[in-house]
Design a protein around this nucleic acid. Structure first.
Lengths: 142, 142
DNA sequence: GCTACTAGACAACTTGGTTGACTAGTTTGG
DNA sequence: CCAAACTAGTCAACCAAGTTGTCTAGTAGC
């Protein structure tokens, strides 16, 4: 499948460049966690699980890793004493900025190879298709 | 990532429809095995492993499953007595035809949503990009 | 305020891979 | 022509990333 291979090719490039600079073995799944936590102020592990389309246990495990590495901080939840509010640390935000820069670099390379107008059409087409699809979860479950 | 989500959305649809009709729990990875075996007459497990970008043990395991289900047949290799030549059975070919029909159905739906000319542009753009990328393996390794 | 629900922790298990060691057959260079 | 190096496939131990199931403590709806 063309989309699978393209996804693979892009993430391969991404991690190739990431490997040079960063320390912890951040995996693609982590990227979605960062983005979600940046967007949702006091998200909990259960919220995250729903967003990622995995069990709450799996989400908790991933969060624990990111906390250990210093990307994420767990604070008492403002209104629910069972829960923890998850937020990005400074390191977490820094990583996100770096990743964004890297993705736009890759996108520029894509544009350089296939043409800028084509990239625009590709993006619009995929967004249209996805809007029509309402697929669960984010990760390409294999 | 747009490509990951599109891939996910399409394979979700694919398996939704597959689930209705078929018996064995064929996973997306199997599709690539079928396609490879159909194209490469007396492929071995090691050939397949290289094609898929996994270890030979993993490839062997997958093949064993498909043999058990009657999709693949192992015959003595014509020139190398250590190896087995892998070929699709009638059932294997039948599945492949069915899967092809299903994919073109999905492609038509894609075209119906985003437009036929857009689909053509998307396909060409991704092929151009991939030709420029020489990424290892096929599966979106997560 | 009792009842039903929910966030998160802990544990056992499953899946789809991995690496390592080995056997039997193949290829190559002197 | 044969010994050394290599390769296909098997077996076994292990690992990573998920799963389900059960439990406790806290929350929310009448």
């Amino acid at each position: 499948m063309l989309f699978a291979r393209t996804f693979r090719a892009m993430t391969d490039r991404f991690h190739e460049r990431l490997a040079g600079r960063d320390l912890e073995p951040l995996r693609p799944a982590h990227g979605y966690v960062f983005r979600y936590l940046a967007a949702q102020p006091s998200a909990t592990a259960v919220d995250l699980a729903a967003h990622l389309g995995v069990s709450k246990q799996a989400a908790t495990k991933t969060v624990a890793e990111l906390v250990e590495w210093g990307y994420v901080h767990r604070t008492p939840h403002p209104t629910d004493r069972r829960a923890h509010a998850l937020t990005l640390t400074g390191k977490g935000h820094a990583y996100l900025r770096f990743a964004d820069a890297l993705w736009s670099e890759l996108e520029e390379e894509f544009a350089a190879v296939v043409g800028a107008e084509q990239l625009t059409i590709v993006r619009e087409a995929l967004e249209t298709y996805l809007a029509d699809s309402k697929s669960e979860g984010i990760r390409p479950v294999w």
